[in-house]
Every structure is written in structure tokens, then in C-alpha cells.
Design a protein around this nucleic acid. Structure first.
Length: 407
DNA sequence: CCTCCACAGGAAGCGCAGGAGT
DNA sequence: ACTCCTGCGCTTCCTGTGGAGG
């Protein structure tokens, strides 16, 4: 009866997973199939540092989930190991520019990586010029080849200045130097750059093409071997997952996510085999997950509108016959707006948006695929739209209720 | 047929934050 | 560091549309 039994049950609960970590989205595998050429190219560029030359800057771009980050990290890790063995002065710092989206933040992150022993607040509050001098000073004094791997480079606001700084620094450095490996998934981004920045950053450039279904299949098979128990995944499941991902974007990350969810679903159902049915269900689950992430990023009042729709949908249990026949879960545009006004007040949000803007929100929610609307045909007075929720009402309500309460 | 209803969605304009220009 | 400008979220006002009802 005790919790010990519950723990025991959890502990010994059978699972299709051998090592779940190996199939998490952020796990970097140590083999990258179909990227031999790309790995070789990156290696060739950075290998200049082994000969004491400054590697040229490299710009990598390709769609999400094509292995750009994994490839760059893999090469750099290997390079560091090799350099360590040969006692060469080569360092690299990986920085994701989504969170470090300004020159200052990049410099700061960089210094903290290089001087981890300094107290937390070191460098905080110093000017960008000071940070820059400190970094250049480090490179000069130690004659290091420093390679900055800047992921999601297009997120940096003052990129021109950042690139200019690193380029200029190399003129002041007789030995050692700073190189940049830039990574972006925005293919148009390169053309919008300042010409000087562009020529500096794109001394070398590479494109990572999307994977096709066949390649995704191989990638998944290999991951399955590491992450799942032998024979725990049917080959049909792998085929379906790779087909879905290939059709959607050639994105290895969604393919992997798909199998992860499918595995979890098999565990929940307490079966020891992952089948294509699990993958099929996982697909909608992954889609819902993406939608849920999307929901939390919506503007406040758009969330309120969506919440209202969810609440009304739940409240209207089966079929309501107030004035004729209403199909299940279908709401009038007008009644939703009225209820939304009340909801907004209930949660202490000052003045609700106008009815006009509310309609704009409805259009947006439809575009996101969270609701569908249909024109009111004969049988209803006036011209209005019927609104129907396309995602799990209870889930939406729970998530948003928690959020409103927290705020 | 005309009118009212209950909306849809276009046009203009307003206040604000952030980027460009100086 | 200052103003200027622009884009964005939103309101106000308005015209359009399809059915209900007299």
C-alpha cells in the first residue's frame, strides 16, 4: 500500500527504451550519416589552425534539422581533443545567438567560457570595448587560435559590428587569431548582409541539404539501435516516421521526436513493441505539442479568446437545441465575443479588445490551425461564423488557466 | 420587396516602441 | 545623445452581405 510499492512499480516498469537520452532532441550523436563530405569540408577549413594559420571564416546554412549544429560541434570537439594531445593552442567556444543576440552578450559569454574561474560577476558592467580588449588580450598573450561557433547567427542585432570587430582584431595579432563559424537556417539572410560583412563572414561557405526519406530511415535505424531495446521497434514504424518527416521538411529532428513519442506511447500502453500505429498517433501528438508551444507565445488577449472558446466548448457538453439544431462543439462568433469580454474582466485584464480586432484574432487562430470557422448558412439569422476548436479543449483550458493565475 | 439583424472585413487614423539618421 | 521616422497593434467608422421576418 505504501509509496514504496508505487516506486517499485515505476522502477521495474518495462520499457521499450534502452537509453532514452540517446533519442532526445538535443543529444549529439557521434556519427553523422550522409554528412561525410560536410564534416570533411569543415575539418579542412579549421585544420589550418593546426599548421599555425588562422582558419578562414565559415558560413554554414541549411534548413532546420539538417545536422548543421551537430556537424560543427562534432568537428570542433574532435579538434579540441586532437589539439590537446599535441599541446596546440586551439580553443573554441560554442554560442547560441538566440539567447546571446547582441555583440556585447556574445563577448560576455565568450569571456566567461574562457575564464571560468573568475567570479560570476566578472566582466559584468564593463563596456563592450573593455570586453573586446580583454578577449584580444587573451588571444595575443596566449597566441591561441580561437574559433567562435555562432549558432543562429541571424539573430544577432548588430552583426556587422561583431564581424567587423573580429576581423579587425586579426590585424593586431601577429600570432593566433579569431575565426568565426556562423550557422543559420535562414537562406535569405546572407543576401541582406552588408557587403563587407558578407565577404568577411563568407570566406568559406557551405550548404546542408535536407535529408530524403531513405537517408532519414538510415539515421533513425541507427538511433533506434542505441536508444531502444533490440527488436522493440518494428521496421514499419521507422519507415513511417521517416516518410512523414521527409514529406514535411527533411528534418531529422522531427523524425526523432516522432519516434520518441511513439516509444512513450508504447510504454504507456504497456506493450513491448513500437508499431506504425504508435507513430501515427505520435504524429498528432507532436503536432499538438507544437501548437501548445505556440499557444503560450500568443498575445495576451488572443489567449483569452482561445481560452473562452475552449471553456465554452467544454461547457456545451453534448448537443444543444436552443434555437434549432447546433452541431456539437460549434459556437457563434457573437456569443464568443460576449463571453470573452466577461472572461477578460474575470481575470483582471483591463479593457478587452474591440469586436473588430477580435475578428482579426479569430482569423489568426484559424490560420494557426487551432480553430475552424464556417459561414452560417440558412437557418440562422444574420450572417455570422461558426467557430469550432480543433485542438484539445481541456488541455488549452488547463494551460492557459495556470498562466492567467500566475500573472 | 423592403427592412432589420448580426455579423464580415476594408479604410483611416492614433499612440507607442524601436531603428535610422545626424 | 538627440530627434525623426516607420511599423505595429489597435480603435473607430463604415460599407457589404446573406438570411429572417413582416
Amino acid at each position: 500500500m505504501s509509496l514504496q510499492n508505487a516506486f517499485e512499480a515505476e522502477f521495474t516498469k518495462p520499457s521499450v527504451f534502452l537509453d532514452r537520452n540517446k533519442i532526445m532532441p538535443h543529444y549529439t550523436p557521434n556519427v553523422l550519416p550522409f554528412r561525410e563530405k560536410e564534416l570533411g569540408d569543415i575539418t579542412r577549413v579549421v585544420a589550418a589552425a593546426l599548421r599555425g594559420q588562422r582558419p578562414e571564416n565559415l558560413f554554414i546554412y541549411g534548413k532546420p534539422g539538417t545536422g548543421k549544429t551537430s556537424a560543427a560541434r562534432h568537428v570542433m570537439d574532435e579538434l579540441s581533443v586532437f589539439a590537446g594531445k599535441k599541446e596546440l593552442k586551439i580553443r573554441h567556444v560554442y554560442i547560441n545567438c538566440r539567447t546571446h543576440n547582441k555583440k556585447y552578450k556574445v563577448l560576455l559569454k565568450c569571456l566567461r567560457e574562457i575564464f571560468p574561474s573568475e567570479p560570476d560577476k566578472a566582466f559584468q558592467g564593463y563596456s563592450a570595448a573593455y570586453l573586446y580588449e580583454k578577449l584580444v588580450g587573451f588571444v595575443r598573450d596566449t597566441e591561441t587560435h580561437l574559433i567562435l561557433v555562432l549558432d543562429e547567427l541571424d539573430k544577432v542585432r548588430d552583426l556587422d559590428e561583431l564581424i567587423y570587430s573580429t576581423t579587425r582584431s586579426n590585424d593586431e595579432l601577429p600570432k593566433g587569431g579569431i575565426s568565426v563559424i556562423g550557422i543559420s537556417n535562414n537562406l535569405l539572410f546572407k543576401d541582406a548582409l552588408d557587403p563587407r560583412t558578407k565577404s568577411s563572414l563568407c570566406q568559406q561557405e557551405m550548404i546542408f541539404p535536407p535529408y530524403n526519406a531513405e537517408q532519414l530511415h538510415t539515421i533513425l535505424e541507427q538511433r533506434v539501435q542505441e536508444a531502444f531495446h533490440p527488436n522493440a521497434v518494428e521496421s514499419g514504424a521507422i519507415s513511417l516516421a521517416s516518410a512523414i518527416a521527409a514529406q514535411e521538411s527533411g528534418d531529422a529532428r522531427t523524425a526523432i521526436k516522432l519516434l520518441l513519442r511513439a516509444g512513450e506511447m508504447a510504454d504507456e500502453a504497456r506493450v513491448n513493441k513500437v508499431t506504425d500505429v504508435h507513430v501515427k498517433n505520435a504524429r498528432s501528438s507532436v503536432e499538438q505539442e507544437i501548437i501548445m508551444e505556440h499557444v503560450t507565445l500568443l498575445p495576451e488577449h488572443e489567449k483569452l479568446v482561445l481560452y473562452t472558446i475552449a471553456a465554452l466548448t467544454l461547457q456545451r457538453k453534448p448537443i444543444q437545441t436552443l434555437s434549432g439544431t447546433k452541431a456539437e462543439g460549434v459556437l457563434y462568433s457573437g456569443e464568443v465575443y460576449e463571453e470573452y469580454e466577461r472572461t477578460a474582466k474575470k481575470f483582471k485584464f483591463n479593457d478587452p479588445v474591440s469586436a473588430r480586432w477580435y475578428r482579426e484574432y479569430i482569423n489568426q487562430l484559424e490560420m494557426y490551425g487551432m480553430i475552424v470557422t464556417t459561414q452560417s448558412g440558412p437557418g440562422v439569422k444574420g450572417q455570422t461564423r461558426f467557430i469550432k476548436l480543433k485542438v484539445d479543449a481541456q488541455k488549452i483550458k488547463d494551460v492557459l488557466e495556470k498562466e492567467f493565475a500566475g500573472a
